[in-house]
Amino acid sequence: MDVTEDGVQDICTNAVFERGESYLSENRIREIHRVDSIVSAVVSGSRQYDVHVDLAADGFDPWCDCPYDGPGACKHVVAVLLQCLDEVPADEGDRLDAALNAADADDLRAFLRDTLATDAALREQFFARFGESSTRSVDELRAAIDRRFEETNPEYYVVFEPIDFSEWFDLATEYREQGRNASAAAVYRALAESLDDNMERVDGAYDNFSQAFTRALDGYVDCAAAADHQADGATDAVDFLEERVESGTPYLAGQFERAASELQEELTTGSDGE
């Protein structure tokens, strides 16, 4: 979990590294916390940006909600890592564990239920972790993702900044880990649909959106193949991808075509092996 200057330089450009150094010296890190190896921080720029890094991960697995669209990590991430180079924040993991162990089971349940009642995203992850199938349809998931586009730049139709889709990718991952591939496929499909239909609004941070689209599409193919080798299910999944080739954003048509071909091949191979 050691942070080295060379390690930080490896994940960013020289110019970004220098800007990160400046941000650190200007005391722009407003908050910084750590639980286990995960460091979360708030860094002040043109607005307040949230940053997450994993000190135990290869390349630190950085994330920031700023609009940076260049190569490597952004200056906010670099500033946080350089702060950890000087002084790693105290680990609050033991304190969290102690509080959980000391909590009364009924009080803990009441607290969790109250929190879940007002946080739909967290509630869906709870259902995914503890044995429930998805409670939201593709259309409902899609509507929530579409709202994120509308909320990102409410005064304009065009979206200039990246959007954090981790809420939905984390949900899909949770379903996959629980073996609920059909539910995961629904999440990936909603992401792919929304990104496809909203791509014409994007004017900046192209890597953010194109990477999210490719990840969603690949996840859909994997989970649709794993979820259902029945004829009807196979036809529905492939039909969705082929329909998008014709109706979706023209420059994404090739990706949908590739995905349809890959899914058809996986379904055929799976059927032959049964």
Rank of each mutant, 00 (worst) to 15 (best):
A185L: 06
L112I: 11
V35S: 13
V221W: 04
Q211K: 13
D106N: 12
A190E: 09
D94K: 15
V77C: 08
A56V: 04
C74S: 03
Y68P: 04
L108D: 06
R258L: 07
Y156W: 10
S247Y: 01
G254T: 09
V8C: 02
D196E: 14
A79L: 13
A41W: 07
A90R: 09
Y206C: 10
L81W: 03
D65N: 15
D228H: 06
E92M: 15
D228E: 10
A224Y: 08
E161W: 09
Y49C: 02
G204C: 05
S261M: 04
F169W: 02
Q48W: 07
A237V: 00
F256R: 04
E274A: 11
D164M: 09
V187G: 06
S183P: 13
C84Q: 00
D106R: 09
S261Q: 10
L141E: 08
A190W: 11
E124T: 11
D146R: 15
A103M: 14
T152F: 07
A98F: 13
Q211Y: 08
G93Y: 14
F60S: 03
T115N: 09
T115C: 07
E92Y: 11
A120G: 13
A186H: 14
A103I: 13
N27I: 07
S40Y: 01
S194E: 02
A192M: 02
